[in-house]
């Protein structure tokens, strides 16, 4: 399933993300005063075709993208279900239906919290300091056959999938971390040190 990572490396990365996501959920839970159920993160190395398939789900989801630079470089894409965003907006006392401006604000805020948590996992626990830029909304470009035609330069894509659920309404989110080849080596070296 996963040629990029050994089982020990995958376990380590998953646990680091789990800890970071726990911190993000706690911040969010205090904000909306509701308990947030968090799934154990799923970590896979995505192939370009799997990555394109993921982006093709843009009817049901919002996507954001933001770059990060430092000891590891790359880009974080966050996918949030449209339905879940509305449910969360209610919990956060937004007026619904959301105006375009409020929706954008909410989506970017949530994406920043989630992607920020993933990067914090790298920075604080692996000593790989990175700076994350602000997110922007992103709509994948599709051709007449509804195929995603976006060209991505990322060859190594780590897909970190986390589900948040708020109250009874399922709020699904995924954070996708795309790393430069050299950064993948840096990341694995740090994980190996931790595993020694």
């Amino acid at each position: 399933m996963n040629a990029l990572l050994s089982e020990a490396q995958r376990d380590a990365l998953q646990e680091l993300m789990n800890i970071s996501m726990g911190q993000a959920a706690n911040a969010l839970a205090r904000l909306i005063e509701t308990r947030i159920t968090l799934s154990i993160p799923r970590i896979v190395a995505a192939t370009p075709s799997e990555f394109a398939a993921l982006l093709s789900q843009h009817e049901e989801n919002w996507f954001t993208r933001q770059s990060f630079m430092g000891k590891v470089n790359g880009e974080a894409l966050t996918q949030l279900t449209k339905e879940g965003c509305e449910a969360l907006a209610v919990a956060m006392d937004y007026d619904v239906p959301l105006s375009d401006a409020s929706r954008k604000e909410l989506v970017l805020e949530l994406a920043n919290i989630l992607a920020g948590a993933c990067l914090t996992g790298f920075s604080e626990q692996l000593d790989l300091a990175t700076k994350l830029s602000m997110p922007t909304l992103y709509v994948p470009t599709v051709n007449s056959g509804e195929q995603v035609v976006e060209y991505f330069r990322w060859t190594s894509t780590l897909l970190l999938e986390v589900e948040f659920s708020v109250d009874a309404s399922l709020f699904d989110s995924k954070v996708i971390i795309c790393l430069e080849q050299r950064s993948v080596q840096t990341l694995l070296a740090s994980i190996n040190e931790l595993l020694e």
Binding site: I19, M21, G22, Q23, A25, A29, R35, I36, L38
Partner: peptide, 8 residues
Amino acid sequence: ISADIQPE
């Protein structure tokens, strides 16, 4: 010893 650190 937990990663889920929410008040509940």
